[in-house]
Design a protein around this nucleic acid. Sequence first.
DNA 1: ATCAATAATAGTAATTGTTACTGATATTAA
DNA 2: TTAATATCAGTAACAATTACTATTATTGAT
Lengths: 135, 135
Amino acid sequence: MTMLKYSRQRECIRDYVRNCHQHPTADNVYAGIKEEFPNISLGTVYRNLSLLVELGEITKISTGNGPDRFDCNTRPHSHFICTCCHCIQDIEMADMDYIARKASENFDGKILAYTTTFYGICKNCLDEKNLQKSS
Amino acid sequence: MTMLKYSRQRECIRDYVRNCHQHPTADNVYAGIKEEFPNISLGTVYRNLSLLVELGEITKISTGNGPDRFDCNTRPHSHFICTCCHCIQDIEMADMDYIARKASENFDGKILAYTTTFYGICKNCLDEKNLQKSS
DNA sequence: ATCAATAATAGTAATTGTTACTGATATTAA
DNA sequence: TTAATATCAGTAACAATTACTATTATTGAT
C-alpha cells in the first residue's frame, strides 16, 4: 500500500457523493463539482471514486447497462432500478442475511458478500401512468 | 417486430451456449465457434446473443466488472462469482420469492424481477489455499 | 520556513466492451 | 426462379473507463 496524501479534489468528491442521494454517475459527480474545481479532470473523478470505494467510504453500484453509480450509503442494503425512468432507490430489508445463510446450505464455496437488485416500476412512473402497485 | 429468418450462425451460437456451462462471454462464444465458422464476425455473435436473450432462450449476466456472461439456464436462479478466479457458478435457492415479497413490504414501487449475486471464494480456490469454508 | 520525496493532478491518449453502419449473401414465401 | 428482406462479414463508431505524462500539491524531515 502506498501512502495516502490529502487532496482537496478528493474531499470535494467525497462530500458531493455524501450529499447526493440520487446515486450519481462519475459524470454526475464531475459535472457537480465543476463549479468548485472548474478544470478538474474526469480521470481524477474516476480515480478518486475508485479510491473512496476501496477505503469503504462509498459504494459502487453496477446497473447492468449504462455507467456505474455511486452510493453514500455503506450499510448493507439493496437497490431498486426502475426500468421506466432508470432511477435507483435504496431498499432496506430486515433480515438480509437469511438469503446468504440459505444460499450457503447447498453451496460448497465461501460466501463473503452478496447484492440483490430489484427491477420494476417506481412510484412516480406508476402514478404518471395511473397504474397500481398490485395490478 | 420484424420476421425472424433462420441462420446457421445463430443456431451454432445457441448450441454453443447451451452446451457450455462456464457462463461464456461474447468473446468466448466467438472463439468457440470460429472452428465451424472461421470468418464469423464478432458483431454477429453480439447481435445473436442479444436476440437469443430477447427470445428467452438464454440469459445475460452482468458481472459488474469485465464483459457480460451468458447462461443457458433460463430458470430463475442466482449466481456466485469467485473474487479469486472469477469463475461463475449457479446457485439454486428454494424460496427465492421470499426476498421479493419481503422487499415489497416497505417499498411503494412495483417489483417485477430481481437478481441476487453472491461473491466469495469458490471450492477450487479454497482447496488450493488449503482453506475451509468456515474459517 | 525550506527542501526533497513523492502522491495527486490536469490533460490527453489508449483500451475495453459493445453497437451501428454498409454492401454482399442467404433464407424465405410466392 | 424470383423478389423481398433478414442476416451476414467487415469495419467504423461509440461509451465508459483506465493508463500515461509532465506539472503541481502535500508531506515529513531538516
